[in-house]
Write a protein that binds this DNA or RNA. Structure first.
Lengths: 336, 336
DNA sequence: AACATTTACTTAATCGTTTACGTAAATAAA
DNA sequence: TTTATTTACGTAAACGATTAAGTAAATGTT
């Protein structure tokens, strides 16, 4: 099967490759008659432009990179959905990279992407990320847009949700439901979203005169067993918390399981609220009070900002920043 | 910031671009001394090869495409995880495309990918896909590997799970739990996995002398409201089913909700088993009996097969087909 | 009629990397 | 010592598309 290139079309039509290229680009330099001949033959032979030749020449790849910590988290998969939708709409392609919460991966990926493969990147930093040089280096060459988990540098568009308010709101909700000893489960010491949420948490604790000593932010780093063990330790103490705020979705299952195993009733003994986009929150036992982030919209907004910038290099990305509010949905896990 | 190219390295080291290129490729034609000089300078200047130039010249992009119906389904997001892991390991990049269960999208994506952008594709066909010419056309140019939802053509590696047995097993399990009127919820008339699962279903029904008239496969196509309405209709009839098998994860929430709304007890009035990879199955109310597919392994196997083929063009992909069994985990939704 | 402009092309260079082929010097084989 | 081989590089042509610059003919202007 012979590869259909511009050269082939040119030969068949007794035209130069330049004419073909311009005709396909619908240039005003080419007559309508010729354009039609070119379009027709291109269609007939099923011509598809070679993306790499074009990218090399134009120094544009029509491709963006998405760096996320993991994909098996509803927030990220839904956000990815939003990103992909915008990308496809504008004729862009989406490369996906999972950092698995590792700073090393993040660095390796960004440095490899520096030349030629993508026109820009969307990212949500890993939970290990506490320095930003690698991102700044990337940012000097190509535009980056952060969503959800942002870095303090470089200065660019940041699509976030109202994490501080949500931390405050979740805490306030628990306090009003009668909780005195609230624990917020964190997964990182450096993550922007976590520090925002915990600031909100601490402010709510202070505002309502709870004892800050019994209301702490606890790290729940690791996977599987580790989380389970940490939670068991937290929940079996004498002075165990009567309220839990999970800052990430994947902690939900372990919280419920540990409570079950320790014979703790939700919401009787412990009230639970999770930052989660799981559709199943409503059918859990008991149904789960959640803070639902606008994952899809955040993905869309981030992609839109990046693509806007790619269209207009003079765009100041910082001004494209957006804060899209999350929603607290009260269900039975914090009820009666 | 000057772009660091092979040409630049060549000038700095007073060597030809050919020598630099070969040195970077660790060619035997180049002396160790020269190689070291090249490597050192490349590292110092932070040289990153231009992927497009290389791809154009070598006619290889080190990129694979992943076409999946959606990503907000645990199966696909976990499979994607497996794919990405293998890809990164072998130095490949992963483009992601969501078909949103639309045949049109699938066609458009594949035809655009025909030249240059990727070296091959992994796909799970959309639920609308009932003809395969577009995939065959792609397959003539580039290798494809199917996972989970396979097409009958072209002949290539198919990474599946034991859908027939699982359909049989799920049904048998419900029958042994006392169900007489079992409904299997489908989402497509053409999907390979569905026809396999429903064949298993029908065989189990026949083997156990249940009335095939009351044990049917019902289409539950559409999203949100539509599914809810369909389920309500099914479950409120006089002769309503006492057993449900959901062939896809996303039906779970609606099943539970409709049962709640109609005052039907699970498992008392209706027993439920779902094909699902949701971690939350265990904390649902009641906990959900599932058939869990080896999503991660399937993703890995599919990616491995494709990359193996890319390394060895003579590899017969058909022989790389694999069937990785799923696991039935019995929980409370089919108990008592 | 003389000159200017527009139209519709072509020529050739370019993007950065790879590679077939060429070559001069060093080493080995006869 | 002469010829063959190996080593270590360089030259230049690709890969396919784009585009600045050039050109000849057609059309417009005064």
């Amino acid at each position: 099967m012979e590869t259909v290139t511009i050269k082939l079309l040119a030969e068949r039509l007794k035209l130069s490759t330049a004419t073909i290229s311009k005709a396909l680009g619908d240039s005003h330099e080419i007559s309508e008659v010729t354009k039609k001949r070119v379009f027709d033959l291109a269609k007939e032979l099923n011509y598809v432009p070679n993306a790499y030749a074009s990218s090399l020449r134009k120094n544009k790849s029509k491709t963006i990179a998405v760096l996320i910590p993991e994909v098996a988290d509803s927030f990220f998969s839904i956000a990815l959905n939003g990103i992909e939708e915008v990308a496809i709409e504008k004729g862009y392609h989406t490369l996906i990279y999972l950092t698995h919460e590792k700073l090393e991966r993040e660095k390796a990926i960004l440095s490899e992407l520096l030349y030629g493969r993508v026109d820009g990147a969307l990212m949500s930093v890993s939970s290990e990320t506490d320095s930003f040089e690698h991102i700044e280096d990337f940012g000097k060459k190509l535009p980056v847009v952060f969503f959800d988990r942002v870095a303090s540098a470089p200065a660019t568009a940041k699509i976030t949700t109202n994490d501080f308010e949500c931390g405050y709101l979740a805490t306030k909700h628990l306090i009003e439901a009668g909780c005195k000893r609230i624990v917020m489960l964190s997964i990182s010491k450096s993550l922007s979203i976590i520090s925002e949420r915990s600031s909100g948490f601490q402010k709510a604790v202070a505002d309502h005169q709870l004892d800050p000593a019994t209301c702490e932010v606890v790290n729940c780093i690791g996977e599987g067993k580790t989380v389970h063990t940490t939670l068991t330790t937290i929940l079996q103490g004498n002075n165990r918390p009567d309220g839990i705020i999970a800052t990430v979705e994947r902690l939900t299952t372990d919280i419920y399981l540990v409570c079950q195993q320790l014979g703790l009733q939700i919401p009787g003994d412990v009230k639970v609220v999770c930052f989660s986009n799981q559709a199943s929150a409503v059918i859990l036992n008991p149904s789960l009070t959640t803070i639902t982030q606008p994952a899809f919209e955040m993905g869309r907004a981030a992609a839109k900002a990046l693509l806007k910038r790619l269209k207009n290099p003079y765009l100041n990305l910082e001004e494209e920043s957006e804060v899209i509010p999350s929603v607290l949905t009260v269900r039975n896990s914090t009820g009666g």
